[in-house]
Design a protein around this nucleic acid. Structure first.
Length: 432
RNA sequence: GGAGGGAUGACAGAGCGGACGAAUGUACCGGUCUUGAAAACCGGCGUGGGCUUGCCCACCGUGGGUUCAAAUCCCACUCCCUCCGCCA
């Protein structure tokens, strides 16, 4: 949620910032208008309520003074004022509800350093990385045996069974088996171990209440992108960001507790409604995947470092895995609803010759904290925390890139050594 | 799923129609005392909102209702605890 006080203080600045991500001036003006109407009604209703309270006090005094006739007439007056107060409050509630609904649809202000642009084509590539680049190595030349799509290799090796997944849950719900399943588990354990030094591991529920989804900004805007369980008022989480951001919902933290850094391995569920028919082969786009998320509540002053730390950890994992990747700064038009700044990591997948998004590291400023009402107490008073988060990493596509990058001429896969302690071995051979 | 008990400030815990935004204790912050600290004593100490910045309004799990007036009475719901049932 954007800051209404800021909107009142500097409406032109807010409008200009939101225009960068496609929000019209009219939309913002409508909110300014509603806000002033809201305040007008608020004053009216509160004035009447103050009268009722004062009259009621006098009724009590009159009763105690045994002046029953006075008490009776005061009661009558109070009842009349109360009736007017009820009407004013009803009008107030209606305006407040409209204002709230419109405010919830407004995305966050992009950070000044975010580049202009309407969609992903305007994202800015910050850097690329591959094994040996520090020593001047050129972009890797991938061999013919690496130019095989992961779904083919996986099928040959019997480590991914998309048909079985489709039979159970429909297409784009992958079923991993044998070494494929073991690899997935190895990746998660590997990542969680790498974050243990600074991030507390959490295992949250995989479903969340509507209210919880509101806090991160996934509702009301992205309802179509999520799986809903209407009977219980629940939604399948699209990312661990959802539960982690709401862990301290409604609380006032002490500044000394910050930053609070959390990590969680969860399944992530996405309907991918807007992407029907696109990138449907193999693991390019799936409805369910495992992801290790990094998250922090911090002070505004800590936010930049916290964001950088998450990015460094996500990149660090890709480097340890020896994968080729690039770093993108998202343009204003491609930012998620709640984000002020986002940096994506895309891994290069030689078999399909594509860059695949495997991490999104975002800084939300106080946008989510305002919705979730998470604050901290400091010497300068109570203020909203900043939230930052990022994947480190989302495994389905990493799994695909590993299978392609490390495919050997004989069709087996030799995994990087860092996974040996977790995988038990480094070789994936055909399932007998 | 059934029966009972509970939810109040950072924490503990009173209040059960009117002077209650809320006793008391602890914690915390300031002061007195002290060489310093502790103890003792004194004072302060919730959050949000509105505007005429001094006042007003809201908040005692959540949402409704009764009343001139609700933390307090009524209804529904949520969560926690105890017992029974069921269950991995």
């Amino acid at each position: 949620m954007i800051d209404l006080a800021q909107l009142r203080r500097e409406p032109e600045f807010v409008k200009a910032a939101l225009a960068r991500r496609g929000v019209s001036h009219e939309t913002v003006d409508a909110i300014v208008e509603l806000d002033s109407e809201h305040r007008r009604l608020l004053q009216e209703a509160e004035g009447l309520r103050a009268q009722v309270k004062d009259l009621s006090r006098q009724v009590g005094e009159a009763r105690r003074a045994k002046a029953d006739d006075v008490a009776g007439s005061l009661s009558t007056t109070s009842r009349e004022v109360g009736e007017r107060e009820r009407l004013a409050s009803a009008a107030l509630d209606a305006v407040a509800e409209t204002l709230r609904a419109q405010l919830l649809m407004i995305p966050n202000l992009p950070s000044p350093e975010v580049p202009d642009g309407a969609d992903e084509s305007a994202n800015v590539e910050v850097r690329r990385w591959w094994v040996g680049i520090e020593n001047g190595a050129e972009f890797p030349t991938f061999m013919a045996h690496q130019r095989v799509a992961h779904w083919e290799t996986a099928s040959d090796l019997g480590i991914l069974d998309l048909e079985a997944g489709a039979k159970l849950a429909g297409s784009m719900f992958p079923l991993y088996r044998g070494d494929g399943s073991r690899l997935l588990r190895a990746l998660s354990f590997f990542a969680l171990d790498r974050h243990r030094d600074a991030y507390e591991e959490i295992r949250p529920p995989s479903v969340a209440l509507t209210e919880t989804m509101m806090s991160t900004g996934h509702l009301p805007k992205s309802a179509d992108d999520m799986y809903e369980i209407p009977r219980d008022g629940l939604w399948m989480i699209p990312t661990a960001e959802v539960p982690l951001t709401s862990m301290n919902r409604g609380e006032i933290l002490d500044e000394s507790m910050l930053p609070i850094r959390l990590t969680a391995l969860t399944p992530c569920f996405r309907r991918e409604a807007g992407a029907a028919g696109r990138d449907t082969r193999g693991l390019l786009r799936v409805h369910e995947f495992d992801k290790v998320e990094l998250f922090a509540y911090c002070t505004p002053a800590q936010a930049e470092a916290a964001h950088a730390d998450i990015l460094a950890r996500a990149e660090g994992l890709l480097r340890e895995l020896g994968l080729t990747y690039r770093v993108l700064e998202l343009c204003a038009g491609d930012l998620g609803t709640s984000s002020a700044r986002t940096i994506d990591l895309e891994v290069y997948s030689p078999g399909v010759d594509r860059w695949l998004e495997v991490s999104s590291v975002s800084w939300f400023r106080d946008f989510q904290a305002r919705r979730a009402n998470v604050r901290f107490r400091s010497s300068e008073g109570t203020q909203f925390v900043h939230t930052v988060n990022g994947s480190a990493l989302a495994w389905a596509r990493v799994w695909a890139a590993l299978v392609e990058t490390y495919r050997q001429p004989d069709g087996t896969v030799t995994l990087p050594q860092v996974l040996a302690p977790y995988f038990g071995d480094v070789t994936i051979r055909p399932r007998p």
